[in-house]
């Protein structure tokens, strides 16, 4: 009996650590993007490396949790939901990683006038990711707070959509950029918007799973 309690606690800690990893990655992402926009390429590349490492750590944690859930026959009712949540949250982290790696590879040129809005977009995306993590965390421990987080998450996602659209309009109205530069920047903005979309999808799923879990 004691080992079951111990196993449960270990698994809880793993899930929590997985979510912490996403939060950690999102903080590094924000700082990395700040360095990039400031032109501090050295520290930026350092952040890229850290996020890459965190992403693979999160993968390991997720696999371990999934394996444990199946091996120990835990959560027979909600197991599918929990696995889907972990995988979809991991997709968000993957999108964060891919975005910053793509930035490191392509080094898109961001004009001075666009930098402030770009940073606003990054912050809104990071807020959405953070809120998504809170939503998922509360799905596990505190169902009654889930709706609040989902509302906040939706606000942040909407914010990214608005900033993103505004930026894309501005980008294509500019005369000092080639079409290929405009398209590169547009892709980058869309990538950022996509992260918030994925986070919102996770929130939508949690909303359904929450209803299923109400006793």
């Amino acid at each position: 009996m004691f080992t079951i309690f111990k196993k449960t606690r270990e698994l809880e800690a793993e899930i929590s650590k997985f979510l912490d990893t996403i939060i950690e990655a999102s903080i590094h992402f924000k700082e990395g993007m700040k360095y990039y926009l400031q032109g501090n390429i050295g520290p930026f590349e350092e952040k890229v490396r850290i996020i890459d490492k965190l992403e693979s750590q999160a993968d390991d944690l997720r696999r371990s949790v999934e394996e444990n859930l199946y091996l120990n026959m835990l959560l027979p009712e909600a197991r599918g939901d929990v696995l889907a949540l972990l995988e979809n949250s991991d997709d968000v982290l993957n999108a964060v990683e891919e975005t910053i790696i793509e930035c490191s590879v392509e080094k898109p040129e961001c004009k001075e006038e666009l930098k402030q809005e770009m940073m606003q977009l990054v912050e809104a995306v990071v807020d959405a990711v953070d809120e998504m993590v809170s939503t998922v965390r509360d799905y596990f421990t505190n169902l009654s707070d889930v709706p609040n987080h989902i509302t906040k998450l939706k606000v942040h996602e909407h914010e990214t959509d608005e900033i993103g659209e505004r930026m894309r309009r501005k980008i294509f109205r500019r005369d000092d950029l080639d079409l290929c530069q405009k398209m590169q920047l547009r892709d980058f903005v869309l990538r950022l918007e996509k992260i918030a979309d994925l986070a919102e999808d996770v929130g939508d799923r949690v909303d359904i799973y929450r209803i299923k879990r109400l006793v």
Binding site: T8, I15, T141, N142, S144
Partner: peptide
């Protein structure tokens, strides 16, 4: 049922512990 729902709404129990 009413009592348990009220109780579960107040305490924060992890889904895994609840399962256990």
């Amino acid at each position: 049922y009413i009592a348990l729902r009220h109780y579960l709404g107040r305490v924060k129990i992890h889904i895994l512990e609840m399962d256990l």
